[in-house]
Simulated assay, not measured.
Amino acid sequence: MKYLYAGDADFQHQSFLELRPIAVWTQLLGEVSWLASLLLAHTHRQIDLANALLVSLIMLAGTLLSLNAGHRHTLLLGMLLNLCGLALGFRLSMLFVTDTSLWATSIAVCITLTMAPVFQSSYSFLLASCCVWGILLQGTLEDRRLWQQDSLIALLTVATLASGLTLNILFRRLRLRGYHLRRDLEALAFQDALTGIDNRRSLLEKLQAWYPAQHGHFLMVDIDDFKSVNDDFGHEAGDQVLQQIARKLSGHPDVALCGRLGGEEFGLFTRLLDSQRVSELAAQLIQRVNTCSVEQRRLSISIGIVQMDGRIGLSAALRQADNALYQAKRRGKNGFVLAPSSPPPPQPHPLAQAG
């Protein structure tokens, strides 16, 4: 029953946001059409104002419920309420027509096909369709001309429901395809295609959103002698090295953010505030990478660490981490350097304030 599949929770929420305004406008169109039928059909006959007001309130309540819906179930309830009111309204209009059978079946077909694309669930669509057909055809039970051709009515009902169900499935699958396409594009835009972790853009945007409210340490990591890996073993081996190290870095429980800054360089953020614990984290990451190898050549990394406590901006913190990484490289690689903490900003002298 994959064609009746309504998608995962995220897709259903996205569909709800997309379909809510469409559902509201479709309901308003139905209400306007019903009002037009009252005004244009046999204007010399008196309208039952009490019943007309009642069905108007039912339709309006359904529309308002759909308009203010915060969840797809509330939207569904509003749509069902509006459709029942609409069907009752058109049944009321049957008092002004001579051929009630033609009127009832025509309206049922129009409502069924019009509302088909708006429903998220095929089961909900079938339930709503049965309600509409039941309400409209209930007033035609005494029409012998109609029910003498019950096989044709059954055929029309089945054909309409099948067509509506096809439209419902088709539009849902189109929305599902668009949802998957957008999700894939977002992954390409914010995820490194080779390693599967955040790319530079995604990592920096997350850091910008977290900092300075979120304090911790930033670790800039560079693979030692990566160029020689590509030169000696080929770029395919280099890609495998990047994937291995990305898994080792991102898999540590104390690493809150991990992204590839470019080439063989990675950026990590940890919420650890104590410099001793951050140093232990860096040593553990180095040990993790040392267990990796390519063609029996052990891999190693160098790390530059900077404290991010809100006293300096993000750009300055990244520069300090890069400088610390450069020092780690100069000290022989396969190690880490913790950048000195930035001094607090100078405070104005009390005498200067008094002056």
Results as ranks from 00 to 15, higher is better:
Leu67Val: 10
Phe336Trp: 10
Gln243Arg: 13
Leu161Gln: 08
Glu186Asn: 09
Pro348Ile: 11
Arg331Tyr: 15
Gly196Thr: 04
Cys131Trp: 13
Ala159Tyr: 15
Gly70His: 09
Asp150Gln: 06
Thr270Glu: 14
Arg331Thr: 01
Pro21Gln: 07
Val109Gly: 02
Glu186Trp: 12
Leu268Met: 05
Ala256Cys: 06
Ile286Asn: 06
Val158Leu: 07
Pro344Asn: 07
Ile107Cys: 02
Arg20Glu: 11
Ser93Tyr: 03
Leu170Glu: 14
Leu272Val: 09
Glu205Asn: 11
Trp103Ile: 01
Ser66Gly: 01
Pro343Thr: 07
Trp34Val: 00
Leu261Asp: 08
Ile301Met: 08
Gly216Val: 05
Ile169Arg: 06
Leu156Trp: 14
Leu86Phe: 11
Asp150Asn: 02
Leu88Tyr: 05
Ala104Trp: 10
Thr43His: 09
Leu299Gln: 06
Ile47Cys: 03
Gln27Asp: 08
Thr100Asp: 11
Gly85Trp: 04
Ala282Pro: 00
Cys292Met: 09
Ala159His: 12
Ser101Leu: 09
Lys2Trp: 13
Lys2Asp: 13
Ser341Tyr: 08
Ala321Asp: 03
Asn334Tyr: 04
Ala36Asp: 07
Leu181Glu: 15
Val55Trp: 09
Arg72Leu: 06
Asp150Tyr: 14
Ser293His: 15
Phe119Tyr: 15
Leu92His: 14
Ala9Phe: 13
Pro343Leu: 05
Leu146Phe: 15
Gly7Phe: 08
Ala23Tyr: 02
Arg288Trp: 13
Gly313Val: 01
Arg20Asn: 10
Thr74Val: 06
Leu174Cys: 04
Pro350Ile: 08
Gly139Val: 12
Gln327Ser: 08
Ser279Thr: 10
Leu35Ala: 11
Leu76Cys: 04
Gln296Asn: 09
Glu205Met: 10
Leu29Asn: 07
Ser124Gly: 06
Gln46Tyr: 14
Ser15Cys: 04
Leu75Phe: 11
Ser66Arg: 02
Ala154Gln: 07
Ser302Phe: 08
Gly85Cys: 02
Leu28Ile: 07
Val294Trp: 13
Ala282Arg: 05
Val32Leu: 11
Phe16Glu: 04
Leu156Thr: 09
Leu80Gln: 15
Asn323Glu: 08
Cys110Leu: 12
Val109Glu: 07
Leu57Pro: 00
Gly70Cys: 02
Ala52Val: 06
Asp231Lys: 05
Ser300Ala: 14
